[in-house]
Amino acid sequence: MLKLDGLCKRFGRITAVDNLSLTIHRGEVFGLLGPNGAGKSTTVNMAVGLLAPDAGTVDVNGCGSPTQTDVRAHIGVAPQALSIYDELTGEENVTFFGRMQGLRGSKLAERVRWCLDFVSLADRRRDRASMYSGGMKRRLNLAVAVVHDPPLLLLDEPTVGVDPQSRNAVFDNIEALRADGRTIVYTTHYMEEAQRLCDRVGIIDQGRLMALDTVDNLITQHGGKSVVIADVAGEEVRVETQDPLAELAKFQNRGQLNRFKVEQPDLENVFLELTGRSLRD
């Protein structure tokens, strides 16, 4: 669905993206994970045709570069910045951007209705966006991205600055879109989001792709061992192991296990292993 091949982008002396190649398959949710400034947004901007790469190519759905106008019709984008008009109502925002996508008449009306229902803003559709909470604006930002029913969605940090309840609502929306068979590219620096939503994750740092695989494989390959912390005969025991269940079975067989806790490796550990620093640095 989306193929990036040897992408490079420099801003002055800074290399934002350095020879980045990856292929995203139809129907998958692909996470682009990295700290702020890693090059995620630059990669997304090149993927949607906003930035021209200094080197490399982008192909969308086998149709060619998104710099071509008709190719961009295959893409829906929810930029990191809330790209909506505060003085227009929710309905007017979705309708306007639907028109920009070439929708007209009953098709447009139907898509606007669906989008507002999808993000649970139908009852607030006549309120100006300036009256919305941060979470509602994020959902409207998502609604505008899907108004033309695109097969490929690029969501750039779609949960930045929202409360946990709204974040869960956004997660529900994304899972519904995945269930509907859309391809989603999801950039974030929250590892929990990537672990929950993404089929595969690419870890990017300083413009380079450090690793690319499923979450489980990345953790297995780069996350290190699990840690079992147990109260054994009144004494706390800490054991690093590849097989926590086997360790717990040993303690149980001795009849000395009172309490236990298992700390499993996550993408934070993967990132630390790959880059030597934390995702939130």
Binding site: V48, L50, T69, D70, Q80, L82, S83, F97, M100, Q101
Partner: peptide, 14 residues
């Protein structure tokens, strides 16, 4: 600066 230009540019419009 508000990002709406980005969204317009990602639409199939010259």
């Amino acid at each position: 600066t508000h990002g709406t230009l980005v969204r317009l540019r990602t639409a199939p419009i010259q």
